[in-house]
Design a protein around this nucleic acid. Structure first.
Lengths: 189, 189
DNA sequence: ACAATGATGACATCTGGTGTCGTGGCGTGG
DNA sequence: CCACGCCACGACACCAGATGTCATCATTGT
C-alpha cells in the first residue's frame, strides 16, 4: 500500500466531471474537487493546467491518431479526401463513447469559459491537419485554409450531433463536408 | 467641470492598450491600468467584462455592418458570394486602421488567453453570418457550414496578414476564398 | 543499507473578478 | 429656483483560481 491512494489523476478527473455535471462548472470549486478526490488543491494544479483542462484530456492523443491517419492515406488522394479520412477517425472515436462525449458537450456548450477552450482545441486540430497536409505536399496557405474549413465543418456537425444525439456523428460529418462541396462548386459563384 | 475626468472608458482603453504593448498582457495588472487612468480597479470591471475585453471593443459594431452588408446583397447572389461581400467589408475596415490592427494582432497571437477570446469573437461573426444567410433563405445547416468555413478562410488570411503586413487584407481574403473553391471543386474528391 | 527520485502536503501569496453600499454632481420636472 | 432621483464612481470586503517554495516520505535502484 502506497503512501497515497493510487491514480490521483484519474480520481481528480472523475471527481471534477461528476461535480461539474451535478452542480455546473462555475459553481464547482477546485477545493470541492480535491476534497472528493482526497488531495490538496495544490495537487489539482499539478495534474491540470486549470479547472477547464480536466475536460480536455485525451484530445491530444486523438489528434495524433488523426495526423497518422492522414499521413497514411494513399498519396493519390486529394487533400480534402485525406483530411476527411482523418476527421472520420475522430468522429468514430467520439461516436464510440457517445454518452460521455455528449455529457461533456452539454457542459461545454453551456459554459462560455469552456467554449473558449473547446475552440482552442479545434484550432489545434486544424493546425495538426494543416501540417499533415503540408507533409503530403499541399502548398502552405492552401493547406491551412482547407484544414480550417474542414474542421469548421466538423465543428458544425458536432454541434448538430448535440441537437440530434440519435444520429451518427461520422455520417453528420460527411453531410457537412458535402454541404461544403456544394457551396463552393464552381457554378453559382 | 464634472466630478470626474471625462471619457473614463476611453482612458481605460488607451491605458490598457499602452501597458499591454509596453510590458505584455500577462505582466500588466488591472491595478496598473487603473492607476494610469486615474480610477479604481472596480471601475475597470464596470466598463469591461475582463482584462481581455478591452482589446475587443468595437467588434460588435463591425459585425453588425457585416450582417447588414449581407442582407443588402442582391438576392440573386449565391450564399458564398453574399457572405464574401460581408467579409470584404470587415477586411477593408481592418485595412484602414492597419497599424493599430496589426499591433493588436501581435498581442493576441502572442497570448494564449487572448487567442481564446479572439476565437470566440470569430465564432460570433460566423454565427452572425449564418443568421444572415438563413434570412436569405439558405437552409440552416448549410448556412452554418458555409459561414464557419468562410470565416475560417478569413481567419487564415488575417493570420497571413500578420506575417506579410505589406499585403492588403481584402485581397488576401479573396485568395483564401479562392483556395476554398479550388479545394472543394467537384473533381478530385 | 543508503542515496536519489518524485509525488504530495502544507503554507504563503498574488491577482482577477464580484457584491454592496455610500456619495455627490447632473438633469429633469414642478 | 428648488427638490428629487438617477447614475457613475469610490471604498471596502471578499472569494476563488493559480503559482512559488519547502518539507516529507514511500519507492526504486545501487
Amino acid at each position: 500500500m502506497g503512501r497515497w491512494k493510487p491514480d490521483t489523476s484519474g480520481r481528480l478527473e472523475r471527481a471534477a466531471f461528476e461535480l461539474y455535471l451535478e452542480n455546473g462548472f462555475a459553481q464547482t470549486t477546485v477545493q470541492e474537487i480535491t476534497e472528493r478526490a482526497s488531495v490538496t488543491t495544490r495537487t489539482f494544479f499539478r495534474h491540470f493546467a486549470d479547472k477547464r483542462d480536466v475536460l480536455f484530456v485525451g484530445h491530444d492523443e486523438l489528434r495524433e491518431r488523426v495526423a497518422k491517419t492522414i499521413a497514411a492515406a494513399p498519396p493519390a488522394w486529394s487533400a480534402t479526401k485525406a483530411a476527411a479520412s482523418g476527421l472520420n477517425i475522430a468522429a468514430a472515436a467520439l461516436q464510440i463513447s457517445r454518452d460521455e462525449a455528449q455529457d461533456r458537450r452539454s457542459l461545454i456548450t453551456a459554459t462560455p469559459e469552456l467554449r473558449e477552450r473547446e475552440l482552442i482545441m479545434f484550432a489545434a486540430v486544424a493546425g495538426t491537419i494543416s501540417e499533415a497536409l503540408i507533409a503530403r505536399g499541399v502548398e502552405d496557405r492552401a493547406a491551412r485554409v482547407v484544414a480550417e474549413a474542414m474542421v469548421a465543418a466538423f465543428r458544425v456537425a458536432f454541434e448538430y450531433w448535440g441537437e440530434h444525439p440519435e444520429r451518427e456523428l461520422p455520417q453528420l460529418v460527411d453531410e457537412a463536408l458535402d454541404s461544403l462541396k456544394e457551396a463552393f462548386a464552381p457554378f453559382g459563384n
